[in-house]
């Protein structure tokens, strides 16, 4: 056995739990894991809509100029605009008036954290932020939970290289994703929608937008390049889009 280190870390961030799994980590990657978790906590402070003193709260309240915000806020704003454009407005960071990028921040943050670890020389990196997964290098088996049967899986994604898997579904308590055009839950809601593509910023935003679309998401998802999706409908049927191997 080579002198490889495998690092695992579980960290509560952004109201959920992040799980890190890093293989082939040297001293640099070990240090990078500390840096990545610290950075994630910092992003939680910057983007939290529940902290009145966060940059995002002050930006929304008009007490902080965008130019005074951190470049991370600029980047997320730009990514939100891109996601809104590519989803014909189905992804929106502006529903209910104020700028609220919550729907994008977690996926983006997970993607960035995984990239930090990978660029620090780790052979294989898996970061799971509350059920949204970004991997870099190595081979990973990512189970997708069955929305209708607790403890079950509906499929397993075998990932190699850089891949992201994001799943959107209904909350146990009330609705969490709404149609930005109506402010109501999706008209024909899916039980869950999983989107697989290269980066988690895109996968997460596409899963959110597609879930808001409900059954209408299928042709849109089919049109997205380099993207596969897997949906379970409310009555337990399944459909997929994207290239099948």
């Amino acid at each position: 056995m080579a002198a490889e280190t495998r690092l695992r870390r579980v960290e509560p961030i952004m109201g959920t739990v992040f799980s890190f799994d890093v293989r082939g980590a040297g001293p640099r990657a070990t240090a990078a894991l500390e840096d990545a978790t610290a950075w994630l906590h910092h992003m939680d402070e910057v983007f939290s809509t529940y902290r009145p003193d966060s940059q995002i709260s002050r930006l929304a309240a008009g007490t902080l100029a965008l130019s005074a915000c951190s470049p991370d806020v600029w980047e997320v704003l730009r990514l939100c605009e891109a996601a809104e454009r590519r989803s014909d407005g189905w992804f929106s960071a502006r529903y209910a008036g104020a700028f609220d990028p919550t729907g994008l921040v977690k996926g983006w943050a997970v993607e960035r954290a995984a990239a930090m670890l990978s660029s620090a020389g780790a052979d294989a990196v898996c970061v799971n932020g509350g059920g949204d997964v970004q991997v870099h290098g190595g081979r990973w088996r990512i189970g997708v939970t069955d929305p209708l049967r607790k403890g079950g899986l509906v499929t397993v994604v075998q990932a190699e290289g850089e891949l992201a898997v994001a799943t959107s579904g209904p909350a146990e308590r009330g609705c969490h994703i709404v149609d930005p055009h109506t402010g109501r839950p999706p008209a024909a809601p899916l039980a869950s929608l999983t989107v697989i593509c290269r980066t988690l910023t895109d996968a997460d935003a596409y899963a959110t937008a597609g879930y808001a679309m409900g059954d209408r998401a299928r042709p849109w998802l089919e049109s997205l390049p380099g993207t596969r999706s897997f949906a379970i409908t409310a009555d337990g049927a399944a459909w997929t889009t994207g290239e099948q191997r």
Binding site: S168, E172, R173, T208
Partner: peptide, 24 residues
Amino acid sequence: MNAPSSRPLRRVLLSTLTTVGGVL
């Protein structure tokens, strides 16, 4: 970032996954 009120898009859910029978 996860309280149930002011969250237009991605409010949280949660699945409680208790057994691994189906997985196995």
